[in-house]
Structure formats: structure tokens, C-alpha cells
Design a binder for these strands. Structure first.
Lengths: 207, 207
DNA sequence: ATCCTTCCCTAACAAGTGTTTGGTAGGTTA
DNA sequence: TAACCTACCAAACACTTGTTAGGGAAGGAT
């Protein structure tokens, strides 16, 4: 009679996601604050009130935690973006909606956005994080086409380099995650409003 | 007769800075590309064509390399900024000059700017890098006062939150280091011109 | 010819890293 | 009561990390 190997069943993906989410949220906080590489699994465990090894009951690696954090963030992000894009409004309205949606995502996923911002450039090289590259392509396409539609419809200026403008707009929106604190002075909508006012009409006084 | 201790004289700060600068430049490239924590001294040594231990003939720690990279960058940056501020031009001219100078610094110190951008938030906590905090205060003061002067002189809009505007302007300028490549399509001056046009006059078509 | 300086190599160190293995307290199910 | 599952701990593992110590080749100075 062959002795049954006591294969340890780990919950990993299947089991009750309650505790997983909890741990992923604290991990995301530490990742965002200290940087992914500077964050040891022992630090994460400390913040979660357990020991380093215990994390491996829930996840099978530090990297898989990072992957799950970024995946779930991007899933929700594209939920919002796709809804905006499918509305097929005018270019100006689309741009306003995209910006507002972005600041809302920052409000909800501050940590994940900060991580994405800091680490994505190094991560895309690994095939495990190839989905980041795909997301970036979709992202660029959405914003660029909106800007180009606006130029064609003569609601955006034609004398600006569209690609440069895209980069400026994109960066300014997302770096907000580095200083934004939820529950602070400004709501995401208020920040979006001010930002749109600046980008659309400029900060100079008109004569 | 007391045996003379063979104290190893290291060049460190005194000696010919030629090789030092060379090594610091390659270190800065690797730091910028992979992130400070993810960069091992062995990687730096690889890029420099030597072994890890040999780096310690020139520097006394990995951290001191980072410090020297950031220090020399900030020194040169403030050389340019102070010149602009001492000119005491009008607020709009000052803002234009600050932006242009910033893009020039990105052109010259792409790697250092990228490092500063990524790591400064975590570094300021250490007393060794307290000079970063001081630089940030000077930085904020320079930009904020320029914006406020502009609002007072009615050349900048009064209905925008100055602090929010400052953050937007600051971030967009510096994140350019993450995608800018010297010798590319746009010169620093051209990028500055486009950026200023966008920020000052907006991207919307005027009626 | 000797000495000294410069610049690097070889080889190791201790500390910290992500991860694995076996165990176990406590609740749930049979 | 017995078997089982969940969620964690305790202790170690192999490896990488920044750093150090001693040595040596090359070349200029004396």
C-alpha cells in the first residue's frame, strides 16, 4: 500500500478571498511606501501581524503578490475606462471623463497606482508581467485617439505635438498618486476639475 | 619600533576625479534603469568592466555613490535655478525660464533626475540624505512664489489652486526624465516650448 | 635598481534574502 | 470521539547581498 503523500492543499486562488485581499492590501501599502525590491517578506508579515513563512500559506511567492495586486488594479481600471470609451462621446467629453475616472482610480487604488508608477518600467521586461505592456498599449491608444479626434474636430489645438501632449497629460494624472491622500482637502472630482481646467484652458489670463 | 599600520590610502574625495566621474556615470545609468535597491554593486562593476570589490577602492559604500550622484546633480541644478531667480524677471518670464532650465537639466542629467524622481521620497527619511529635503523646500518656494507673483500681477488665473497647480507643473516637468532620450526627436528647448504653450494657454481651441 | 603609488583582483565574511518543511492549536465535520 | 481542515508558528535552507582584507601587476619617481 503506497503511503499517501500529504500534499498540502494551499488555498492560493480557490479559497475564501477575504483574508487574501486583506493581506494583499497591506502588502500593497508596504510596496508603495518602500518600493518592491526594498520590501522584504518579513516586513509585510510584520505589518500583517504574522511571520514571514506564514505568508506562503496564502501566496506562493512575493512576486505573485505583486502580480495579483497589479492585475486586480488594472482589471478595475479598465472596467471604468471601457465604460467611458464605449459611451462614444465627443473628444472633449471623453477626455474629461478619462481624467476624472483616473483620479477616482487613484482615490481607490492609491497604493497599486504608486507601485505601477514606480515599478512597471522594470517589470514589463519579465514575461510574467507582459500584461502590463498590453495595458500600456491600450492606454496609449485610448488617449492618443481621443486627442487626435479632438484635433480633427477642431476642439483641440492643431499646433501641439499630439504625442508630447499625451505624455504630459498621462504623467501628470498618474503621478498625483505620489502626493494624493484620500480623505484630504480635495476630492478626486475636484482635483480632476482643476486639472482639466488647467490643461484645457491654460493657467495664463486671457486678454 | 612600532610596526607601521599599512593604512590604505583611498582616493575617495581627493584624488583625480576623472575615473570617479566615469564610474559614477555608469552607476547612475544602472541605478536609473534598475532602481537603486535592485542594483547590486556587482552589476555596477560589470558595467564598468571590473569586479565588485574593486569599486571600494574609489568609494566607501554603495550609498555614498548614490549620495554623490544626487549631490552633484543638485549642485548644478541650483546653479541654473539661482541664475534664473536672481534675474528677477516677471512671473511669466521666470516660469518660462524655470521650465526651460529644467528640461535642460533633464537633458544633461537624465539618469540622476530619474533616480531622484524614484528614490527621493524614501531617501529623505535618512539623515544622510537630508539635503534632499532642503532642496525640495527651496524648490517649492521658488515655484510657488513665482506662481503667486503671477496671480497677484494678474498674468496667471486666480481661480486655480496655486498649490495644486504647482504640483501639476512640477511633476509633469520632471517625469519627462522617464521617457526623454537625449539626441531624440525633440530638443530640450522644443519640449519646453511645447510644454509651456500647453500649460500657459491650454490645449483647447479658443473661440 | 628600488620604492611608491595607482588600480584592480581573489577570496572570503556576516547579514539578510525568499522560500520550504514539519508541526500544531483551534474550530468544523462525520 | 475521531478525523479533518484552516491558518498560523518555529526553524531551518540555499543563495545573494554589501563589504573587507591581502595581494599583485604596471608604471612613474628617486
Amino acid at each position: 500500500m503506497p503511503t499517501k503523500k500529504p500534499i498540502r492543499k494551499k488555498p492560493q486562488v480557490t479559497a475564501a478571498p477575504a483574508r487574501r485581499r486583506e493581506l494583499l492590501d497591506t502588502a500593497a501599502e508596504v510596496f508603495a511606501e518602500q518600493g518592491y525590491n526594498a520590501t522584504t517578506v518579513r516586513k509585510i508579515a510584520d505589518h500583517a501581524g504574522m511571520l514571514a513563512g506564514s505568508l506562503y500559506y496564502h501566496f506562493d511567492s512575493k512576486e505573485s503578490m505583486l502580480e495579483e495586486i497589479l492585475r486586480s488594479f488594472l482589471d478595475e481600471l479598465w472596467g471604468g475606462y471601457d465604460a467611458v470609451l464605449e459611451a462614444e462621446s465627443g473628444p472633449r467629453e471623453t477626455l474629461e471623463a478619462l481624467v476624472t475616472e483616473s483620479f477616482r482610480e487613484i482615490d481607490r487604488h492609491r497604493a497599486a497606482v504608486a507601485i505601477y508608477q514606480k515599478e512597471s518600467k522594470q517589470l514589463v521586461a519579465q514575461e510574467r508581467f507582459a500584461f502590463l505592456a498590453e495595458s500600456q498599449r491600450k492606454f496609449e491608444k485610448a488617449w492618443l485617439s481621443t486627442l487626435e479626434r479632438g484635433v480633427a474636430a477642431q476642439v483641440f489645438r492643431a499646433d501641439l505635438d499630439v504625442r508630447l501632449t499625451y505624455r504630459f497629460v498621462r504623467d501628470t494624472v498618474w503621478v498625483a498618486a505620489s502626493w494624493y491622500r484620500p480623505g484630504g482637502q480635495h476630492s478626486p472630482e475636484e482635483i480632476a476639475r482643476q486639472y482639466l481646467s488647467m490643461v484645457l484652458d491654460g493657467i495664463a489670463v486671457r486678454e
